[in-house]
Nucleic acid binder design. Structure first.
Length: 806
RNA sequence: GCGGGUAUGGCGGAAUUGGCAGACGCACAAGAUUUAGGAUCUUGCGCCGCAAGGUGUGCAGGUUCGAGUCCUGUUACCCGCACCA
């Protein structure tokens, strides 16, 4: 009798072997097919790993361990996305420097991940806070700046009136500061912006040909929000022209008023002519307290608000009538031109607004009942009350009016995107310094590339300043420098980059992590890129994914990378919820720590459990009681070594189960259906037990197929059984299709779709013979008695259905 | 509000994509073994019913010989919404 299964000795033993022998380190090898598998690198938080992290790491580890055994050259790296707000806040609260917090957190994360036996190539670890890394993050920013894709703009930020700092949206709870509870207002601040909108069209179009799961692709398309319409120029009594964007230029005759966002620059310009300046200012102040999110929220019981501008009116270019202008917070400064033409008859929000303020509602598309509600159907409507457009369909009218506007010089066709430019400045310490210098005579100047990295100075007072600037602004010795252009006095930009920056290109650095001369060597990039398979959370679908695709496309345009897309395939894992079915969080107290699971059950059990828990793409609640089942499975695999017979080969009665399992596991793993693959392994184990134990060769197949899921125990058993070498280096088993099928099969017999019996027959039985057998069956005869067969359905090898009457 | 999802036993989940619903596991029950069990093994296990049988995939309709799967409508819940990452 062998000793009990003891993961506490087995697991560290093999983890040590892997690290010392560098089992999973790779080099470029043109002779082998490369496979670049990527999982999102974590933000190393002070809480350490929680059981949600290992789910994607393990799932991809299963794939790559299998691919290696199939002879592929696998790159599977890991690193740290370590700049960011939580670390800074933790540092402020606990008076420990963020650099130290970060180092400690990374060390903890690394050892926790290694304890899970994930086969990462630890020689390629990257860290976004390492100056040798962020040198290149800054370099990319400079290239963007040189190509005109980085610019400064006044943007509104969340300003805490109590703490006097800029807050992240997350730190604002119900309009108040999360920490001090003070009022949060919107405040204008000059910010660095990146022109991701310039790439909006390509970010949609190039999705074609990529293997992204559908919900990811759809989300990105919707987030970018391409729409086709027109820009129309309205005149005003103030003399200025107002340009609006609309997807419904056909309805311009029905535009009975205009609405601008409360932040619209004309309001300042028109101050002298506005007769109700106080009311306008009061409304602007009110709007400043709301986020865009709150402002666009449209619920039936929520009344529209707004103020009519007195003293200035607009002129509808189609009707040439004067129409009033309102300001209202349902119009956002950040979308379109920050002003709209309102067509209450054919837009729901305009309709609600018009009803509230008693504005005229004109029907210009017939087909609905505008007495009751806005008519928004573009398919069936016919133009009315629209001069030369009358009688046209909506589509025809769109074209006709656009041509007319162009001829009159009052508009043009325009494609618009919901996507906004990327706000790239953070008034924080723990981020990459933006490598720009302000010179009073030369304006903003990029620092010279040979000055990179521009290191983040080590300071002790990393709390934001009272003016809302980054804490770096307090350090004159760092801020004061010379202008790179004229050599005169200059001041450094004190804002830092957002955490998204470092994560927008990290997959490139893994290809050549120590390169001091370039982002990565071109040949190495050519070998490894693009990433063949990228798995990550749904929460990164629109931000991180689009930011990194944008940067990659830019680097492609300037010749740094050779592929226009970074990721060929994207899959997404579901979250692991707490035992109570709620999101794991410290405040709910439902966080499960993987260390505890490993120490009680072992890493292999943890891995098998997380892969067995359910559909990888769906959220799944943690269940401590269920883990036992996974451990019991491994215990039984371990115990089976004692009943292995000396017989060779696969016995005939086990051929079908063995070959079917090889096939199922091989296919399921590629589709991340690890749960059903494990179920198949459990079934094979049950078959072996039922057969009184496996032969040495049968057992070998089980151990081999188990290896990607439970690498430690399988490596140990492989060694004990003397199969030779390590499983990790053994060739993945193959199945013989002919051996997966049985010669006799069971066919279900239904009457009116209800199963009423079975017949057992040869696998290749024909229709007539099968029907005859079914009719001969006693139970079926009873069902068919006194009935008339109307139809006989035959699904070869599977099913017979008699449709009967009477 | 906008966008993306989900719904199957007491629980986690399977179902070759229109063909025997509940694989595999957890929990539970009975039995065996054991000084003992939070160990191991055997058997049972959707619901109603002694049974025959009936019924059953959020809810209401529909298509079909046949629907968890397709269509129409509906409800509930989850995720994201641009400075958390």
């Amino acid at each position: 009798m062998t000793e009990r299964y003891d993961p506490k000795t087995i697991e560290p033993k093999w983890q040590k072997v892997w690290l010392e022998e560098k089992t999973f380190s790779v080099r470029e090898d043109p002779a082998k097919k490369k496979f670049y598998a990527l999982v999102e690198f974590p933000y190393p938080s002070a809480q350490g790993l929680h059981v949600g992290h290992p789910r994607p790491y393990t799932a991809m580890d299963v794939v790559v361990r299998k691919r290696r055994m199939q002879g592929e050259n696998v790159l599977y790296p890991m690193g740290w996305d370590a700049f960011g707000l939580p670390t800074e806040n933790f540092a402020i609260k606990n008076h420990i420097h963020p650099a130290i917090v970060t180092k400690n957190n990374i060390d903890r994360f690394r050892s926790q991940i290694q304890a899970l036996g994930i086969s990462f190539d630890w020689d390629r670890e990257v860290n976004t806070t390492d100056p040798a890394y962020y040198k290149w993050t800054q370099w990319i920013f400079l290239q963007l700046y040189k190509k005109g894709l980085a610019y400064k703009k006044e943007m509104s930020v969340n300003w805490c009136t109590g703490c006097k700092v800029v807050l992240a949206n997350e730190e604002v709870v119900n309009g108040a500061c999360e920490r001090c509870g003070s009022d949060v207002v919107r405040k204008e601040k000059s910010q660095w912006m990146l022109k991701i909108t310039e790439y909006a069209g390509r970010l949609i179009d190039d999705l074609e040909g990529l293997d992204y799961i559908e919900r990811v692709a759809t989300s990105q398309v919707n987030w970018i929000g391409r729409s086709h319409g027109a820009e129309i120029t309205f005149g005003t009594t103030a003399g200025d022209e107002m340009v609006v964007y609309t997807t419904r230029p056909d309805t311009v005759f029905g535009a009975t008023y205009m609405v601008m966002s409360p932040e619209h620059p004309y309001l300042k310009k028109w101050a002298g002519q506005l007769k109700n300046l106080d009311a306008v200012a009061a409304y602007q102040d009110e709007a400043a307290h709301k986020s865009d999110f709150e402002r666009t929220e449209l619920s039936k019981d929520k009344e529209k608000t707004g103020v009519r501008l007195e003293g200035v009116a607009a002129i509808n270019p189609a009707t040439e009538q004067e129409i009033p202008i309102y300001i209202s917070d349902y119009v956002l400064a950040s979308y379109g031109t920050g002003a709209i033409m309102a067509v209450p008859g054919h837009d729901e929000r305009d309709y609600a607004f018009a009803k509230k303020f008693g504005l005229p509602i004109v029907e210009v598309v017939a087909g609905g009942d505008i007495e009751k509600e806005a008519f928004t159907d573009c398919e069936t409507g016919v133009m009315v009350n629209s001069g030369f457009l009358d009688g046209l369909s909506v589509d025809e009218a769109k074209k006709e009016i656009t041509d007319w506007l162009v001829r009159k010089g009052k508009g043009e066709a325009k494609t618009n995107y919901k996507l906004r430019d990327w706000v790239f400045s953070r008034q924080r310490y723990w981020g990459e310094p933006i490598p720009m210098v302000w010179c009073d005579s030369c304006g903003w100047q990029p620092i010279s590339e040979d000055q990179l990295p521009l290191e983040l100075p080590y300071i002790e007072d990393f709390e934001p300043t009272a003016e809302g600037d980054s804490p770096l602004a307090r350090h004159d010795e760092w801020v004061n420098t010379t202008c790179p252009k004229c050599g005169g006095p200059g001041k450094r930009e004190t804002d830092t980059m957002p955490q998204w920056a470092g994560s927008s290109w990290y997959f490139l650095r893994y290809c050549d992590p120590d390169n001091a001369k370039a982002i990565a060597d071109l040949e190495k990039l050519a070998y490894w890129m693009p990433v063949d398979w990228y798995n990550g959370g749904m929460e990164h679908t629109t931000l991180h994914m689009l930011y990194s695709r944008f940067w990659h496309k830019f680097l492609f345009d300037i010749g740094v990378v050779k592929t226009k897309e970074p990721y060929m395939k994207r899959t997404s894992h579901g979250m692991i919820l707490g035992e109570d079915g709620q999101k794991m969080s410290k405040s709910r107290g439902n966080v499960v720590n993987p260390d505890d699971v490993i120490s009680e059950f072992g890493a292999d059990t943890m891995r098998v459990y997380e892969m067995f828990i359910g559909d990888f793409e769906k959220t799944a609640p943690w269940n401590t009681a269920s883990i036992k089942g996974s451990r019991r499975f491994l215990d039984r695999v371990w115990a089976l070594q004692d009943s292995v017979s000396s017989e060779k080969g696969v016995r005939p009665q086990l051929e079908a189960p063995v070959h079917r399992t090889i096939k199922k596991v091989t296919n399921d793993v590629e589709h991340l259906k690890h749960n059903t693959a494990i179920a198949a392994l459990m079934s094979l184990l049950n078959d072996f037990v039922a057969a009184g134990g496996p032969t040495k060769d049968e057992y070998k197949v089980l151990i081999h197929l188990l290896n990607p899921f439970a690498p430690h125990i399988s490596e140990e058993l492989w060694q004990r059984m003397g199969y030779g070498g390590q499983v990790a280096a053994a060739k993945w088993p193959e199945w013989d299709e002919a051996k997966t099928v049985e010669d006799t099969i069971e066919i279900v017999v239904q009457v009116n779709g209800k199963p009423r019996g079975h017949i057992t027959a040869a696998a290749d039985i024909g229709k007539e013979e099968a029907l005859a057998m079914a009719k001969a069956d006693e139970g079926i005869q009873k069902q068919l008695a006194d009935k008339q067969i109307v139809k006989e359905i035959w699904v070869p090898g599977k099913l017979i259905n008699f449709a009967v009457k009477g």
